[in-house]
Design a protein around this nucleic acid. Structure first.
Lengths: 377, 377
DNA sequence: AGCTTGCCTGAATCCTAAT
DNA sequence: AATTAGGATTCAGGCAAGC
């Protein structure tokens, strides 16, 4: 068994275990997993290829080229080839999981429906799907779709009858301002100093995941000393976070360059002090409210008249949250600017609803929306 | 064809159409859809049922370690029935969709992975998956999982080569603080006065969707007067919102009680005023203007000098509407690209006329031509 | 030092009418 | 049907350079 070993994590190695703890196994994940003992792993985190099926090149509006994921490991002949690949690794993972073990998989709409169906077919029991909302996603440059601002994780037990899986509910709740942890997580993408760069200054791996995401997963569904297996180890985020949080890891990676980078990265990690291993508080939402939401929720009706404080200008509210000044249509800010012949305008304070002889700034309705949404932050 | 008709929506019924507009068809959706003409519907919104057999499996006493093969085979049978049902309605829907039509489906982790896989298998092309984040979800009482705080929608075109689908990008952006719309939507669940109650005070339908959700869908992906089909009409949220927003609906529902409640609900809806609904003009829909026309009509004279904003490049206007950069001759776009060494360039915004010390983008002259042509009808 | 400005980049299934 | 060419299109954040 070819492997590279990283410095041992702090927690004790289980007595008599045949597991190659805190090690990256070089090779195909199905073949490597078959060498491991059955029922030996507490949790699996898997970030499989997404099968993006990209066609041509994509340019930003400034004509720069988007550095897309075109690596050979992400190319599959067909959906059925991808499905066969998926079933194979899901089966291998299910064998090495303890009866109480759980699986986490991450994916996008390109592959996650295939993965979810396959794991249901194989007898896994879904506990949750979790949405990773990206605070700073790549925009949609052509304006032809919604900005793809999230990825999906599936959390599943080995079977419908699985009992005793780990879920650190109390710690998560305490770390979330005493609110129950929700299935939607707001976390920034991996960038800046956290992003591994080669000597040439280019990213080591095209799809490195943020450590905050793995930390949330491990703190939610494992205990200190648990063994976490990652069959698509890549740049080793799972290993780095596991070591930091006092969990053991086992990685499997086909690419020796990725594995080498991951080993160096993990060796540089300083494990947290024992008492610090509690759930990190959830990041709060920026309380940005769109005027379309105010209309959508019925606080201001389509067709309503908006006026400025001195009633010099009048605009009509439209169903989609734009407003019209004569024939000119745009956002509350843009139309406020147009009305005054200015470059910019804060539409929230400029526009008012006139009712019962009183002017109500639309900003008041924004506050109501914020109150409604506060719990969801 | 058995149906119940609601008061006609405001928009005109297309001439010679065989479609039962603004009507609820009573019956099985596959059978009813097969009676409709192919390629006739602009959008489909589907809220299919979950697999109840699955939930039966959940409650089955199953404490002992069951033979894994038998267990998964049994589960496969129930998934298989759900998959067959899903393929049937997805196929029927695909037939009635226009080539440029799109499908929206909503579901939770119980069924959405099956639906997503099936629609990919049938040739649909996913445009986005969208997360409906619930501002006020049902709490998780036992504290054994994350609070299930979202549902997933899939937005798909009829095929990978489908063109011309409706996406009201400019309006959505203007209604969203001038930021492009994202794939995660925060909307409260349906409750309070909006929730339909029977005479006994109990809710009419167990999974009534909020009107705000449907409004977001219809405003994103349809135009006024479009035909929206809902094969699982239920309490009729799709119809109520379609009527309010000046879209036509066709509903299919097996349960006569649901259909009756939906009809009453829709009849009580007041359509929005026309002016609040008209499609906001998008730049990409504006009439094309040739630069030759600008020269022809004397707005820019042959021989005039064009420069970029920073006056790094200078080109000469020719009588035929081409421009010359040194010895290179071509369109305003081609020459703008050549000047910067880029693949592409929008010549309308890149090139300017310098006069009286001020730079005027030639786009301004295009606007004048458009205004002239509008007056001429 | 501290602030402003500009540049770069991120799992992307990202155009369409006219010829 | 396939090709050509017009011309429309981006947000947050990290970091370096400039002032």
């Amino acid at each position: 068994m070819a492997f590279q070993r990283t410095g041992a994590a702090r927690a004790e190695r289980p007595e008599g275990s045949a597991l190659p703890l805190d090690t990256i196994l070089i090779g195909d994940c199905v073949a490597e997993l078959e060498k491991l003992p059955a029922g030996s792993v507490d949790m699996v985190f898997a970030d499989p290829p997404y099968n993006l099926q990209l066609q041509g090149a994509l340019h930003r509006p400034d004509d720069s080229l988007v550095d897309a994921v075109t690596d050979s490991w992400d190319r599959f002949e067909s959906f059925s080839a991808y499905d066969a690949f998926t079933r194979a690794w899901l089966l291998a993972v299910r064998r090495v999981l303890k009866p109480s073990g759980t699986l986490w998989v991450i994916g996008s709409y390109h592959n996650i429906f295939r993965v979810g169906s396959a794991l249901q077919d194989l007898g896994y029991w879904i506990l949750n799907d979790v949405v990773w909302r990206k605070a700073n996603p790549m925009p949609n440059f052509r304006g032809r779709r919604f900005t793809n601002a999230h990825e999906t994780l599936i959390w599943a037990a080995r079977g419908a009858d699985a009992k005793g899986y780990t879920f650190n509910y109390e710690a998560l709740k305490a770390g979330n301002e005493d609110l129950q942890p929700r299935s939607d997580w707001l976390i920034p993408i991996c960038s800046g100093a956290e992003r591994l760069k080669g000597e040439d200054g280019r990213k080591v791996h095209p799809t490195q995941k943020p450590e905050a995401l793995l930390a949330r997963v491990l703190l939610s569904a494992t205990k200190p000393g648990d063994v976490v297996l990652d069959p698509f180890f890549g740049s080793g985020t799972t290993g780095a976070v596991a070591r930091r949080l006092g969990r053991h890891f086992i990685g499997v990676e086909r690419d020796r360059d990725y594995a080498a980078a991951a080993n160096a990265r993990i060796a540089a990690v300083t494990p947290e002090a024992e008492e610090a291993l509690t759930a990190a508080p959830a990041k709060r939402d920026a309380a940005r409210v769109a005027f379309a939401t105010v209309v959508e929720r019925g606080l201001v009706a389509p067709g309503a008249r908006l006026v400025d404080e001195r009633r010099r200008y009048e605009a009509v509210v439209r169903a989609d949250g734009t407003i019209a000044l004569g024939t000119v249509i745009g956002s509350i800010h843009r139309i406020g600017a147009v009305a005054q012949g200015r470059e910019a305008c804060n539409g929230w304070t400029f526009w008012h609803v006139a009712e019962a002889g009183r002017l109500t700034p639309i900003d008041a309705y924004r506050e109501i929306i914020r109150a409604e949404d506060r719990l969801a932050g």
